[in-house]
Design a protein around this nucleic acid. Sequence first.
DNA 1: CATATATTCAACCTGTAGGTTGAATATAGC
DNA 2: GCTATATTCAACCTACAGGTTGAATATATG
Lengths: 109, 109
Amino acid sequence: MTTPVLDLAFAALSDPTRREIVQRLAKGAARVTDLVQPFDMSFNAVSKHVKVLERAGLVRRTRTGREHHIALDPEPIRRIAGWASRYERFWSDRLDKLEVFLKANRKRD
Amino acid sequence: MTTPVLDLAFAALSDPTRREIVQRLAKGAARVTDLVQPFDMSFNAVSKHVKVLERAGLVRRTRTGREHHIALDPEPIRRIAGWASRYERFWSDRLDKLEVFLKANRKRD
DNA sequence: CATATATTCAACCTGTAGGTTGAATATAGC
DNA sequence: GCTATATTCAACCTACAGGTTGAATATATG
């Protein structure tokens, strides 16, 4: 029941619509209404997506009157990058790839 | 219906069990049976998790007899890191954070 | 050959994800 | 004050996720 940061962040970003929203917000904050435009989907659907992003901490909301301004909070993305960087050592490191492969087959010798 | 690389990779990694499996595989390939050990869950459940990782391209399977050797393929993680790095500019860059915040409020002036 | 081991496949269950529609709520503007 | 705008809330639907159990399948081993 912990559903920690990475769980929520990864899950939120697994949806292409939400990644597109994040990308859009990188260019500056926007109202929910502004975010709807590029999508072939109801306002409510986008509103829900924003809520998911908010729950994951990827987005901050500030209310001014009836308008909600949605701003990117890149911290969870940073966490993801941190998590991923543990595997940098493996990326296209052909020696390491070979090693992993050999280790798999060595067991049978 | 495209369900491209990032969709599947992010979704696969949103589950803590699967991230743990990935971490385990970073130390070397393993059979499905070997992967079950740390988890309080049926063999079949773990087998399913492995299948999800495989479908996401995070894992490669080589059959030798009745044993399946599961090896990490870090390429999708690299893709995620690449995606995340677009936002490096924002990470704890307080000037940028301020800018985003101001842009949100400027609209109302 | 008979049995133990490694694995998937298939059916099932419960919960949640992503979408819809139809209110309800609150603020803005004439 | 009335109407338009920005937004959430609530109910609903369908599909899929993550787990279970019980076969089925294929390879090792005495």
